[in-house]
Design a protein around this nucleic acid. Structure first.
Lengths: 157, 157
DNA sequence: ATAACTGCAAAGGCTTTGCATGGAT
DNA sequence: ATCCATGCAAAGCCTTTGCAGTTAT
């Protein structure tokens, strides 16, 4: 951190479209799998076997800052990356962690109810649906585990 | 991992209310700060100076499984813990990461629009508001940074 | 020559886990 | 005696970073 508050704003005098950067962007754009950095690394390595994981992370950060892709902070410990930079919601499979787009338009009035009710200046929201993907819906054990994870005991101790 | 698929379901023949567990629960209940594990560790250590961070994590996991508290996976890399086990939404300050309850009732019809529109079996949603807390709202630099972080360039490369 | 970029490996931050010890029934 | 819980330290997982070498202008 070079002490100007922004995370790297001294870079990018002129940006180069390297092989690595292009392939990362292409692979994110040409499918819709919302991969983790590591999964994308595996995909990109088929075309560029010598690329490093650090390069993948660095380019994902740069492409996000440029608005070419978006970095998703969904539930789960790993970040996901989306080749579509426009805001949209996602749905996560509770059993296999697959992520898909949620076919629903942005809810721009969601924060209206909060105006005046909170001391915060509200600037947006993050919404994520959870459920079971088709494959896991067909799996009885996956359904059982999912339902169990939603049930909270919450009885007096 | 002892090979039964569940994460520790073999424990809890009889659960003990130890000093450590009680203090952790009390400190989560008596205030509303949604601390990280490490922040809670700092708080609890004032009363139990010899407690370890591992014990804090272990008890947070157990108390969550019991439904006594909830573990929040909000944006940001660290988990937060909430002494109120009932589902409710939260709002996060984009500048200082303070978390408060969002004064809005659960939106139980949110997933209705998705029925039939997705191949997933929808089972719930996670919603989080983002904005600026009162202190950071008063801070011009915080406001500038927050607005800047919301603006996506998204121009052709 | 300059500045951006890369591969590699090390370091970092947060969380989980193994192990020997301690405490309650 | 049993078994749950603890403190401590090490390991793990994901991500970031330092550095020396490479590439494009």
């Amino acid at each position: 951190m070079s002490g100007n508050g922004q995370k790297d704003s001294t870079r990018c005098e002129r940006l180069r479209m390297t092989q690595q950067r292009r392939v990362i962007l292409e692979e994110l754009r040409c499918n819709n799998i919302h991969p983790t950095a590591d999964a994308l690394y595996g995909i990109v390595r088929k075309r560029l076997p010598r690329i490093s994981l650090g390069t993948v992370y660095r380019n994902l950060e740069i492409l996000t800052a440029l608005g070419e892709i978006q970095t998703l902070e969904l539930s789960g410990s790993q970040k996901r990356y989306d080749g579509v930079p426009q805001k949209h919601y996602h749905i996560r499979c509770m059993h296999c962690d697959r992520i898909d787009d949620a076919p629903i338009a942005p809810l721009n009035t969601l924060e209206d109810e909060l105006y005046g009710a909170t001391v915060y200046t509200i600037m947006g929201h993050r919404l994520e649906f959870v459920g079971l993907c088709p494959d896991c819906s067909d799996n009885a054990e996956a359904r059982r585990l999912a339902e169990q994870s939603l049930a909270l005991p919450a009885e007096p101790y």
